[in-house]
Measured scan of single mutants.
Amino acid sequence: MDVFMKGLSKAKEGVVAAAEKTKQGVAEAAGKTKEGVLYVGSKTKEGVVHGVATVAEKTKEQVTNVGGAVVTGVTAVAQKTVEGAGSIAAATGFVKKDQLGKNEEGAPQEGILEDMPVDPDNEAYEMPSEEGYQDYEPEA
């Protein structure tokens, strides 16, 4: 019985440690998101679009440190934060509304985080759909 109880105690310690790591990862992701939003706020009209992409990228980098179902929630929060940063930029006159959601080359930025393969159960990952990809044929 002692062996059984000791095993359960060790398992509990492992769960607590994993929860603490997840909590730490979420806190880091939130900190990076805040950094990115402050970065966007300090940019001029020309830099705002690039700044919004930076927020998304920093958040995406930190999301990889967070495991399990938390990833889905962090990704949703990050996307809403990026959308909010863009709205703030438009409201303050840093950028025109028609410039939001495009990178410096004018290509749409939507789907940055949505296409990231995420499995809350950590069982399997699927690649994003290939609808947006084109076949590449090298020139002879």
Rank of each mutant, 00 (worst) to 15 (best):
Val52Met: 01
Ala124Lys: 09
Gly86Pro: 03
Asn103Ala: 10
Lys34Val: 06
Val74Ala: 12
Leu100Lys: 01
Met1Cys: 00
Thr72Met: 14
Ala107Lys: 11
Glu110Gln: 11
Asp2Gly: 01
Ile88Glu: 05
Ile88Ser: 06
Val15Lys: 00
Phe4Pro: 00
Ala89Leu: 13
Pro128Tyr: 09
Gly47Met: 14
Lys12Ser: 08
Glu28Leu: 07
Asn122Asp: 13
Lys96Trp: 15
Ser129Leu: 14
Glu137Ser: 07
Gln109Ala: 12
Glu126His: 13
Ser9Val: 02
Val77His: 04
Glu139Val: 08
Gly132Lys: 14
Tyr133Ile: 13
Glu105Arg: 06
Glu123Trp: 01
Gly73Val: 12
Gly25Leu: 11
Thr75Val: 12
Gly25Met: 15
Gly41Arg: 14
Glu61His: 08
Gln62Gly: 00
Thr44Trp: 14
Asp98Asn: 12
Val118Tyr: 06
Tyr136Cys: 09
Asp121Ala: 06
Leu113Asp: 12
Val3Pro: 00
Gly7Pro: 01
Thr72Asp: 12
Glu104Trp: 08
Gly73Ile: 13
Ala11Tyr: 15
Leu38Ala: 09
Asn65Cys: 13
Asp121Asn: 13
Glu123Ala: 06
Ser9His: 04
Tyr133Gly: 07
Gly51Arg: 06
Asp115Ala: 13
Glu83Arg: 08
Thr72Lys: 08
Glu104Ser: 05
Glu61Lys: 09
Met1Asp: 02
Glu28Ser: 06
Asp2Pro: 01
Ala53Trp: 04
Gly67His: 09
Val82Ser: 08
Asp115Ser: 10
Ser9Thr: 03
Gly86Tyr: 05
Leu8Thr: 00
Glu20Gln: 06
Thr81Cys: 15
Glu105Cys: 10
Glu126Asp: 13
Val77Thr: 07
Glu139Trp: 13
Glu20Asn: 09
Asn65Gly: 09
Tyr133Asn: 14
Glu126Cys: 14
Gly51Val: 11
Asp135Val: 04
Glu28Arg: 14
Glu137Met: 11
Ala76Trp: 02
Pro117Arg: 04
Gly84Glu: 06
Gln109Asp: 11
Pro120Ser: 10
Ala19Thr: 03
Glu126Met: 11
Tyr133Lys: 04
Asp121Phe: 04
Ala76Glu: 10
Lys97Ile: 14
Ala19Leu: 15
Ser129Asn: 13
Met5Leu: 02
Glu131Ala: 01
Val16Phe: 11
Gly41Asp: 00
Lys96Cys: 15
Lys10His: 15
Lys45Asn: 02
Gln134Ile: 10
Asp135Thr: 12
Val66His: 05
Ala124Asp: 05
Thr54Ile: 15
Asp2Ile: 15
Gly14Phe: 07
Tyr39Asp: 15
Gly7Ile: 04
Gly132Trp: 08
Val66Pro: 01
Ala19Asn: 01
Asp121Tyr: 15
Gly93His: 04
Gln99Tyr: 09
Ala56Glu: 01
Lys23Asn: 04
Gly93Phe: 08
Ala85Val: 14
Tyr125Trp: 11
Lys58Gly: 00
Thr92Lys: 12
Gly41Thr: 10
Ile112Cys: 11
Gln62Tyr: 01
Lys97Cys: 13
Ile112Trp: 15
Val49Ala: 14
Glu35Arg: 08
Thr81Glu: 03
Gly41Leu: 06
Lys10Tyr: 07
Gly93Arg: 08
Val49Ile: 14
Asp121Lys: 11
Glu110Lys: 02
Gly106Leu: 11
Lys21His: 08
Lys32Ile: 13
Leu113Pro: 02
Asn103Met: 10
Ala18His: 04
Gly73Met: 01
Thr59Cys: 14
Gly36Lys: 08
Ala78Lys: 07
Ala30Thr: 08
Glu83Pro: 08
Val71Ser: 04
Gly132His: 08
Phe94Lys: 00
Val66Asn: 03
Gly93Asp: 06
Ile88Asn: 00
Leu38Gln: 04
Lys97Asp: 15
Thr33His: 04
Met5Thr: 02
Ala76Val: 12
Ala90Lys: 13
Lys10Trp: 06
Thr33Asn: 03
Lys21Ser: 12
Lys6Tyr: 08
Val70Leu: 12
Gly132Tyr: 14
Thr59Ala: 15
Phe4Ile: 03
Ala85Ser: 09
Ala30Met: 08
Gln134Trp: 10
Asp121Thr: 06
Ala90Trp: 09
Val55Tyr: 02
Val55Met: 14
Val48Lys: 01
Lys58Thr: 13
Lys96Ala: 14
Val74Tyr: 04
Lys10Pro: 00
Pro117Trp: 03
Val63Ile: 10
Glu105Lys: 07
Pro128Cys: 10
Thr44Met: 10
Met1Tyr: 00
Glu139Asp: 07
Asp2Gln: 15
Leu8Lys: 00
Lys58Trp: 02
Tyr136His: 05
Lys102Thr: 10
Val77Pro: 03
Glu123Ser: 08
Thr72Cys: 04
Thr81Ile: 13
Gly36Ile: 15
Glu83Ala: 12
Lys43Tyr: 15
Gly47His: 15
Val15Phe: 04
Asn122Trp: 02
Val70Glu: 08
Glu61Ile: 09
Thr92Cys: 04
Gly93Glu: 07
Ala89Gln: 03
Gln62Arg: 08
Thr64Leu: 10
Val82Ile: 14
Gly31Thr: 10
Lys12Ala: 05
Tyr136Ala: 07
Glu61Cys: 10
Ala140Cys: 14
Glu130Thr: 05
Lys32His: 05
Ala91Met: 10
Ala90Asp: 03
Lys6Arg: 05
Ala30His: 00
Lys34Gln: 04
Met5Lys: 08
Thr92Leu: 10
Gly84His: 07
Asp115Thr: 11
Asp135His: 13
Glu83Gln: 04
Thr59Gly: 07
Pro128Val: 03
Val15Pro: 00
Thr92Arg: 01
Met116His: 07
Val118Trp: 12
Ala17Ile: 10
Thr44Ile: 04
Ala124Asn: 08
Val82Glu: 05
His50Ser: 09
Ala91Asn: 12
Thr59Leu: 04
Glu123Gly: 13
Gly101Thr: 06
Asp121Pro: 14
Glu110Arg: 05
Val70Arg: 01
Lys21Thr: 03
Thr33Gln: 00
Gly36Tyr: 14
Lys96Ser: 12
Val37Asp: 00
Glu28Phe: 06
Glu126Val: 03
Phe94His: 06
Val70Ser: 00
Glu126Trp: 11
Glu137Asn: 10
Gly47Glu: 02
Glu137Cys: 10
Glu28Asn: 09
Gln134Ser: 10
Val63Leu: 13
Lys21Arg: 05
Ala107Arg: 09
Pro117Lys: 06
Gly106Pro: 08
Val118Ser: 05
Glu61Met: 04
Gly106Arg: 01
Val49Asn: 09
Glu61Leu: 04
Ala90Phe: 07
Ala76Leu: 10
Met127Gln: 07
Leu38Glu: 07
Val26Gln: 00
Lys60Thr: 05
Ala56Lys: 11
Ala19Cys: 06
Pro138Ile: 01
Asn122Lys: 07
Gln62Thr: 10
Pro108Asp: 09
Gly41Ile: 09
Ser9Cys: 05
Lys43Gln: 08
Val3Ser: 03
Thr72Pro: 00
Phe94Pro: 06
